[in-house]
C-alpha cells in the first residue's frame, strides 16, 4: 500500500521561497526586463570604448567602409557637361569650379557649386545634376541684356530687371540695345522697358532715357529735343505727347522740351531762335519794345 520510503519534502527551501517572492516583486521584474539589458549593453560599450586605440579603430573602420562605398564606380563622376552657356562662360565656369575628375558624387556639393555659379552676373539660373553615366550636367540660363546703361564709369549691359550682365567698352558691340543713363536707372529698368514699348512712332527718334534725380525719366530725342515725363504714370504722359505729336506734328516745330511733369498741363519750351521769332512776331521782343518806346 504505502511505500515506506521517506517522501520528498514538498516545501520550498528558504532560498527558493525568497527567490520566488523576489520574482513576484514588480520593481524587480521591471529592472530585469529593461534595466539589466540596458546596463549590460552600456557596460559592454563603455568598457570597449574606454581605450582610445579601440575608439580610433572603430572610427577608421567606419571611414574605410564609407570610402569603399562612395568610391564604387556607380557613384563616380568623370566629366562635366555645360549646356546653355557661351564658350567663354563655360570655360569660366570650368575654371571656377576647378573639379579634378574622376570624383565621387558624394564629394560633390551641388548646392554650393550652384550658388557659386549663380553668383556670376551673366548667369540667371543654373541647374546641376549628376546624370547617368557619371556626368555632371550643368544647365545654365544666361541673362539677356536689355539695356545699355551709361554711367560715369563706363557702359554696362543690364537685363530687363536691372541686373548687371556685363561691362562693355563701346556701344558698337550692341548697337540695337536702347540706352539709359542716370543714377538709379538700373533699378527702374522695368519702367524704362514700358516707356520704350510705348514709344511707338517716336521710337526711331529716341536716343535714350535719362533718369533724373532717381525719380523720373527724360526721353531724349534726336535734334536735341527732350520729353520730361512725370514721376507718376510716365507711360500715359508719353502717350499723350505722342497723340499731340500725331495730331499737330509737335516735334516738327522748333521746340526743345516737352514738359509733362505737371500731368494735366503740357508745357513746351521753344528753342532760342523760335522764341525770338515769336517775340518778334508778337512785337514783344526787345527791339520792338525799344522802337515802341522811342516812338511816341
Amino acid at each position: 500500500m504505502q511505500p515506506m520510503t521517506l517522501r520528498r519534502d514538498p516545501a520550498p527551501s528558504r532560498m527558493s521561497y525568497r527567490m520566488q517572492r523576489l520574482w513576484l516583486t514588480p520593481a524587480f521584474r521591471i529592472f530585469l526586463r529593461h534595466g539589466l539589458p540596458l546596463l549590460v549593453v552600456m557596460g559592454f560599450f563603455g568598457i570597449y570604448l574606454s581605450s582610445p586605440v579601440r575608439r580610433a579603430d572603430v572610427v577608421a573602420g567606419y571611414q574605410s567602409i564609407r570610402h569603399a562605398v562612395e568610391h564604387r564606380p556607380e557613384f563616380m563622376v568623370s566629366m562635366m557637361s555645360i549646356h546653355g552657356a557661351s564658350t567663354p562662360l563655360a570655360d569660366a565656369i570650368r575654371s571656377m569650379l576647378d573639379i579634378s575628375f574622376p570624383i565621387s558624387s558624394f564629394d560633390l556639393d551641388l548646392k554650393a557649386m550652384r550658388a557659386k555659379i549663380e553668383a556670376l552676373d551673366v548667369v540667371a539660373s543654373a541647374n546641376l545634376q549628376v546624370v547617368a553615366g557619371g556626368v555632371l550636367q550643368v544647365t545654365i540660363t544666361q541673362r539677356s541684356a536689355a539695356f545699355v546703361w551709361r554711367t560715369r564709369d563706363g557702359l554696362e549691359l543690364i537685363d530687363a530687371t536691372g541686373h548687371r550682365v556685363a561691362s562693355i567698352t563701346s556701344r558698337e558691340a550692341t548697337p540695337n540695345l536702347p540706352l539709359i543713363a542716370g543714377l538709379g536707372a538700373d533699378k527702374a529698368a522695368a519702367e524704362a522697358q514700358a516707356i520704350f514699348a510705348a514709344a511707338g512712332p517716336l521710337a526711331p527718334r529716341i536716343r535714350g532715357l535719362v533718369r533724373v534725380g532717381d525719380r523720373r525719366w527724360n526721353v531724349v530725342l534726336d535734334r536735341d529735343q527732350e520729353i520730361l515725363l512725370p514721376e507718376q504714370d510716365p507711360v500715359a504722359a508719353l502717350e499723350r505727347v505722342i497723340a499731340v505729336d500725331q495730331a499737330q506734328a509737335l516735334f516738327a516745330h522748333d521746340i526743345t522740351v516737352v514738359d509733362m511733369r505737371l500731368p494735366n498741363r503740357l508745357t513746351l519750351r521753344l528753342s532760342d531762335a523760335a522764341f525770338a521769332a515769336r517775340q518778334h512776331a508778337l512785337g514783344l521782343d526787345m527791339a520792338a519794345k525799344k522802337a515802341g518806346a522811342q516812338k511816341p
Binding site: 519534502d9 514538498p10 516545501a11 520550498p12 528558504r14 521561497y17 520566488q20 517572492r21 513576484l24 516583486t25
Partner: peptide
C-alpha cells in the same frame, strides 16, 4: 516549511507577492 509551501503556492496562483 509548511507555511512556506502554502504561501508560495498561493502566491504562484495569484501571481502577486
Amino acid at each position: 516549511r509548511a507555511v512556506r509551501t502554502a504561501v508560495q503556492a498561493a502566491q504562484k496562483m495569484a501571481n502577486v507577492r
